[in-house]
Amino acid sequence: MVFSGQSNTALAEKICQHLNIPLGRSETQKFTNDNMIVQYSESLREGDVFIVQSLSTPVSDAIMELLLMIDAAKSASAGRVTAVIPYYSYARSDKKDAPRISIAGRLVADLIQAAGADRVLTMTLHSPQVHGFFKVPVDHLSSDVVIADHLRARVPDADQGVVLAPDAGSIKRAAAISHRLNCGLAFIDKQRVSDTAVDPRALIGDVQGKRVFIVDDEISTAGSLVEAVNFAKRMGALEVYVAVTHGVYTGPAVQRIRELDAVEVASTNTVLVPQEKVDGTDGKLSVLDVAPLFARAISNIHTGESVSTLFE
């Protein structure tokens, strides 16, 4: 049984289409005092329940709705409850890198488990170590195969290009996509100049006269993306394509992408991208579908098969 919160119902519906089952019926109401209530409209007794909810804007509402849905499912005697979180926004807060702060990634994990989730299914955590914050089984999907297939279809001679990691922390992800495309690999070495600013210092690899594929886990305000694209062009890149897992697109992101010297910016539908944002980039923005991948993972979890075989 698959149910959806309000953050990304479109993805949940597509997942159900691939599973050939109807999307479960539930209702979420918000009272004038900002309190929420969630109610299921069908029996969940002994069901294998999957609740799809991206932790996207408004994030606090998305988290609270997910917790209520998990708790309500457990109270309704569901046999097993899996929290399907395509985008786990608090994964950036994975360590105490400043005094007197919370490790919010761990806190949210604790809340999800306290609500009663038996397992978690997510995709491309910004910090993979967040996986370890959970004491329940976690299936961590990767969008690499979807991104690589898209780039191969978009650029026929993709094997002659170069996958560029925008920073050293993204090298592992970039290397995986480079391997799938059978093309070159490069990364940008950055230097922190202040608490809020990071400048590119050098490009390790060769992009001169080549098509460059910048890959990352997410785009928020697109500030770092602008730096990476401009630096690649200064280093002689012929064309630049961008592909990320999570297209959050907050603040000035749409305007920056519209003015970006790149052929295309692609992200998956782990986060719902409104049509007005797509239209606002003059055709540069495209959305890739990961519903088939989530559907296969949910099917394998339900039947007790391996999820890792989806990436072999």
Rank of each mutant, 00 (worst) to 15 (best):
M64K: 13
A98F: 15
S89L: 10
A98T: 12
S77R: 05
F134Y: 15
L121Q: 03
A115D: 03
Q129M: 08
A114F: 04
R106S: 13
V120R: 00
R80Y: 09
M69H: 03
Q129R: 03
V84H: 04
R80Q: 15
L121E: 04
I103H: 05
Y90R: 11
A73N: 09
K96N: 12
A72H: 07
V84C: 08
I85A: 06
K95W: 08
A78D: 05
A83Q: 01
A109R: 05
F134R: 03
Y88A: 07
M69F: 06
V130R: 01
K96F: 09
I70N: 03
A114R: 10
V108I: 15
M64T: 13
F134M: 06
K96I: 13
M123S: 07
R80D: 04
A83T: 01
Y88D: 10
D71E: 15
L111V: 02
S75L: 14
M69N: 02
L107C: 08
A109G: 13
D97Y: 09
A115G: 03
I103D: 04
L66M: 15
H131F: 15
A98Y: 14
D94P: 05
S102M: 15
R119M: 08
K95A: 14
Y88P: 07
T124F: 12
S127Q: 14
L111K: 03
R119S: 15
H126G: 00
M123N: 07
K74C: 07
D97L: 13
I101G: 06
L107H: 11
R106G: 14
M123C: 13
R80C: 12
E65G: 06
V84P: 00
Q113T: 13
A109L: 08
K74M: 06
